[in-house]
Design a protein around this nucleic acid. Structure first.
Length: 561
DNA sequence: AGTTTCGGCGCC
DNA sequence: AAAGGGCGCCGAAACT
């Protein structure tokens, strides 16, 4: 009745396998089989596979239609455990973990590879250094013991399991691809940019706008060159430090309007134009390479194609297959809800216990109904705003929600002082490298206060670098705990969709898209609601906090919300 | 010539 | 007193 097995692919295409007991130790002899895929396919009762690297194994399984229920990715767990132990930066490969266990030279990690435009998932590329199953089992057993020594062992086990689940989801998404209508994309481009001229010249609309800018300055100006634009403004008697949009828009000059419009369209052209389409869309699918846990906060990244930055106007090209639908689901006010759950602030939990607009409720309690101010205050608290109206708003927020603000203040102070900062499940913020400036500060001016946590965090004493680390740490606990929750959400949603034709095809921090036959759409909507509930309880325990989603069943992504 | 950094902006 | 967290992407500029 063993439901957990470990496997290690061999160099000749074969595989070593062993059943594991409840304690994580081998419960039977190591067996050798000739075919990895067949070995997995013939063991459908296995509910969790322990392997070195999901990227090494799972694409090969998916390529022949074999899915697995759960996995445990030893190298990902190694990364998370090293971070938790304050050993960020030590080599994270299974080979390195084994060397640390046995004593001996620790091999450095192989350099990361980057995606080529249009490349399929790297089926036949080497993925790190393979290890023998006996060695993998030794590392795995030690990792179990290291979980026991974590600050919250149960949460740490949940974290490594959740991120392994995320890697399964990411691999499946990479295989599925996002439905993409190249013809619609081209129509949008033509609409916005005009004809595409031969060669590498600008499209018509950009050329016209560049002419308008030049006319406004009375000389030839290249609007795509910030240095040229700054110089042109200077010659016109307008001092401007940069060509950022908010700065330009405060100027009174006839070049501003065409310039801002040019920059907007230029961005579309270079980042999501015709050459992007050529590079990244094949056979009706955009296939970015999703990578779970690619950032220090646990947010995902994509490799290639800028999949997490698809401009709104371009989403018109994301269209479901005939007879199918896109279920687009967006978590409502995820960050303040997560802050409520991790800080256990009674007032904020009460507000976050409703499914209605959280910012409106916060503003009713602390900002006389001014929702915009309330939203700015909450985001300022999370992002570490240190000046302007933000401070005033933060004070109002602190009066009503003291524990919530104290929670992020504490994180900021810990970050400034170089202490470890963790997400709810235990992902750990990397300590920044020390600088000379910090050493000076510590020798002279005190950085923080004496460690009591009931007074407001006050900027202005620490060095610039230390303050930046404080902002980073402040944001880290919220953004990272939100990422913890999102992993559990994806895992639960994936399980709910397992019996359906529905596929997860896109994920962006707090938003997920499921591609499904029309008659499954309502079941998917229900599955998202249920998965959100399960994820909230699993991640944060029993709290009143709710994580509602706005869902839309559409044929085109651009029609959602 | 090839590689790294910068400026700007897209998304959350 | 115009601004803060995480990313990726592109071309240009600044390097080696």
């Amino acid at each position: 009745m063993t439901d957990r097995w470990a496997l290690a692919p061999a160099e000749d295409g074969g595989v070593e396998l062993a059943p594991l007991g409840g304690d994580g130790l081998p419960a039977g002899p190591v067996v050798r089989e000739a075919d990895l895929v067949e070995a997995v396919r013939s063991r459908p009762d296995v509910t969790r596979w322990v392997w070195r690297s999901t990227a090494e194994v799972y694409p090969r399984l998916l390529a022949t239609g074999v899915r697995v229920e759960r996995c445990y990715d030893v190298e990902d767990a190694e990364t998370l455990l090293l971070g938790h132990e304050g050993r960020y930066g030590e080599p994270r490969s299974a080979a390195a973990a084994l060397a640390r266990l046995r004593g001996g030279p620790v091999p450095p990690d192989p350099p990361p590879r980057s995606a080529e435009p249009g490349s399929q998932s790297p089926l036949f590329e080497p993925q790190g250094t393979p290890v023998r199953l006996a060695d993998l089992l030794a590392v795995y057993a030690e990792q179990q013991r290291r979980h026991d020594r974590a600050e919250h062992p149960d949460r740490m086990r949940l974290l490594t399991a959740a991120e392994s689940a995320g890697m399964l989801v990411a691999t499946e998404m990479n295989r599925a691809g996002l439905p993409w209508r190249a013809d619609v994309h081209r129509a949008v481009l033509h609409d916005l940019l005009g004809e595409r001229y031969a060669g590498r010249g600008e499209p018509r609309r950009l050329a016209e706008l560049a002419d308008e800018v030049s006319a406004a300055f009375g000389r030839r100006v290249r609007p795509d060159l910030p240095a040229d634009v700054v110089k042109a403004f200077a010659q016109a008697g307008v001092k401007v430090r940069s060509t950022r949009r908010w700065e330009l828009e405060s100027l009174d000059h006839p070049a501003v309007k065409p310039l801002v419009e040019y920059k907007k369209l230029y961005r579309i052209w270079v980042a999501h134009g015709w050459s992007w389409l050529q590079d990244w869309v094949r056979d009706g699918r955009f296939r970015p390479e999703f990578h779970a846990g690619g950032t220090v906060t646990g947010r995902w990244v994509t490799n290639g194609g800028g999949a997490l930055q698809i401009p709104k106007v371009i989403r018109r090209a994301v269209v479901a297959d005939p007879g199918w639908r896109l279920v687009v689901a967006d978590a409502d006010q995820m960050e303040p809800r997560v802050l409520a759950a991790i800080s256990r602030d009674p007032g904020l939990m009460e507000v976050a216990g409703r499914e209605s607009d959280l910012y409106q409720a916060v503003s009713d309690r602390a900002f006389s109904g001014d929702r915009a101010q309330a939203k700015l205050a909450v985001l300022g608290a999370v992002y570490g705003q240190t000046s302007g109206d933000g401070l005033k708003n933060l004070a109002a927020l602190r009066r009503r929600f003291p524990r919530a603000v104290a929670y992020v203040d504490d994180a900021a102070r810990a970050g400034e002082e170089g202490r470890l900062v963790r997400t709810w499940l235990g992902r750990t913020c990397p300590p920044a490298a020390r600088t000379g400036e910090d050493a000076e500060d510590e020798a002279g001016i005190p950085v923080g206060d004496d460690g009591t946590d009931d007074r407001p965090w006050v900027p202005g004493y620490a060095s610039t670098d230390a303050r930046a680390r404080g902002r980073f740490a402040r944001n880290f606990v919220v953004q990272g705990s939100a990422a913890d929750w999102a992993l559990l959400l994806l895992a639960a949603l994936r399980r709910a969709c397992a019996g359906m034709a529905a596929e997860l095809v896109f994920f962006q921090h707090d938003e997920v898209i499921v591609h499904c036959p029309e008659d499954e759409a309502e079941a998917v909507v229900a599955a998202i609601r249920e998965a959100s509930h399960v994820a909230g309880r699993l991640t944060f325990g029993e709290t009143p906090v709710r994580f509602p989603f706005t869902t839309a069943v559409v044929e085109c992504y651009a029609d959602a919300k």
